[in-house]
Write a protein that binds this DNA or RNA. Structure first.
Lengths: 213, 213
DNA sequence: CACCGTTGCCAACGCTTGTTGGCTTGAGCG
DNA sequence: CGCTCAAGCCAACAAGCGTTGGCAACGGTG
């Protein structure tokens, strides 16, 4: 089998599987050693976030985790499996109904900016965004995340056109993340989080409430 | 010299230069054969846009241009040189002063959306965006583009805080391009261009005119 | 103690990539 | 015709990559 251009695209479901039928499957959640597993995942998250998918090498992740590259393979089956395991976001879905209608835009923006500012966690979003841009499979993953995290709550308010509003809000928020955390557009990158929220929230508020065209 | 992880970062200024002192330098604009040169550039633009920098191989570009990979090297010196030559945007800077103040947001959004919809040209932006996300050098290139195309015209209106307004508008527009053309968030990706302009323009208008925090 | 599964490392395989140098072809010109 | 020079192709190189299989150390259980 060996290297097949390592495309991260579907069709490479589970190539690893040891030849002896028994033993835990490496790909999903084989509990080999919880400590090492966490070390690998932490190293993978930060490296994927810092360098993107293609420029991240399994050897580098292994080195940062203090183990050998073949260990990463045994734990996660493949580079694509490692990426998947490292970027399964724990979805904290905002509940828009708790805020008055006029402040829901601010609630959304604050929710995401606060999350991203916590640098121990925003690695996942950065890694996902860096990779989605060149991988259709990961792009689909991000589409789904936008659907669940944004369009979903909007639809839960009973809004028709929730899909359109969700996509517009998603584009605004992804642009914000791109400009602030990846491209580091100044002065956006060094503004205080509260100022960013204050600047962007009204736009999101308008996407939430504007009448259909 | 050979392969040095092909990082696209600075420091690899001009490695090509034939050993005989004469002859046109390959890197910048050597007029070897105008037709072939254009064919390579067109193939490079579409491939870089479609697959991103790392997943684009010189062999693929050469194949699409109907020539050999070594020809690409002789024309452009290196993969990084090819990318640079393929993504030098011809800046068409919008003049905001021609529109009344209340319609300048619409003017900006329409300017960029119209440009991107012309698929023969938006390849450059897509390629640039796909690559900027994983290359600091190209990210700097995009920063400069935002400065010239957005912050510049805003500043030309005599606005203080132009930098802040420009960065916010840039983030909104880049998010729009990301969602519509790269991630293809629905229904944003299939909306009519005019509807997109109508939806996003008021946000840009507000970034242009909102009072400081 | 003997057995066995786990954890880990080491060395290699096979493949792709950017890049180089030499060869062939063909047109222009004395 | 014979020479030159650009344009092009072919074959190879060196390196890095994901991935694999075998082997050493160790800890628990009979």
């Amino acid at each position: 089998m060996a290297r097949m251009k390592d495309s991260l695209l579907p069709g490479r479901a589970r190539p690893a599987q040891r030849r002896d039928g028994q033993g835990p499957v490496a790909g999903s959640g084989g509990p080999r050693s919880a400590g090492t597993r966490r070390a690998i995942l932490a190293a993978a998250r930060s490296t994927f976030a810092a360098r993107g998918y293609e420029q991240t090498t399994i050897r580098a992740v292994a080195g940062q985790a203090g183990i050998d590259a073949s260990m990463v393979m045994r734990y996660f089956g493949s580079k694509a499996g490692l990426f998947t395991a490292a970027t399964t976001m724990d979805l904290v879905i905002p509940d828009l109904a708790v805020a008055p209608a006029a402040r829901r835009g601010e609630l959304i923006v604050r929710h995401f900016v606060d999350r991203w500012e916590d640098s121990s966690r925003d690695d996942e979003l950065i890694a996902l965004l860096r990779t989605a841009v060149t991988s259709e499979a990961v792009a689909a993953q991000l589409q789904a995340a936008v659907g669940q995290l944004i369009t979903g709550p909007v639809a839960a308010l009973g809004d028709d056109r929730a899909a359109e509003r969700g996509a517009l809000i998603g584009a605004q928020l992804l642009g914000l993340a791109l400009g602030r955390y990846i491209l580091r557009l100044e002065p956006l990158a060094s503004m205080a989080a509260a100022d960013v929220v204050a600047a962007v929230a009204p736009s999101v508020q308008r996407y939430l409430s504007r009448p259909p065209p």
